[in-house]
Amino acid sequence: MFKDLITPQTANTFIGKLGDILVKAIDQPLGYAINWGRLWSLWPVHIETACCSVEFGAASSPRYDVERFGIIEAFGSLRQCDLVVVQGTITRKMAPRLRLVYDQMPEPKYVIAMGACAITGGLYFDSYNVLPGIDGILPVDVYVPGCPPRPETLIQGCILLQEKIKNMKAR
């Protein structure tokens, strides 16, 4: 009779219930803490795709200084990064490499499409070697328009991304 009570199904249900309660109990504060950590520590991967990299470099200059927001420029390896800033035009030669870089980065990772070329192809809409935007190859979180966007615009894009991370799934 006792054996009937403790079947694998009931044990499973019990543990599942316990797990649910635990999840409800700790997931919200934990998720909030994790998201808070992530949004203040966005390390962009070091990949330059086109001319917007000039303005990306200027964004870390003393006048704009993205490190105020915890964004370190010029970080070495992609394994330690969590933000892809697509700096402009993606050519057909660069596209597979960009995707590979994105694939090799650890989760969670975010994408900012910077500049008109990264969004739609921009000025190069009719060029034979340019992709019409990076939507086809990467899931974009924030679009930063401009040709090229001013550093302030890029910083605003980063703040928008931080707002977005705040409301994201923690895991």
Partner: peptide
Amino acid sequence: PFYCGKFEGILQLMGDGLKLISK
């Protein structure tokens, strides 16, 4: 680091640490 933790970014390291541990 300036904005993380309201005052001169003193919580920046905490943010980095939480990010790294949840990565």
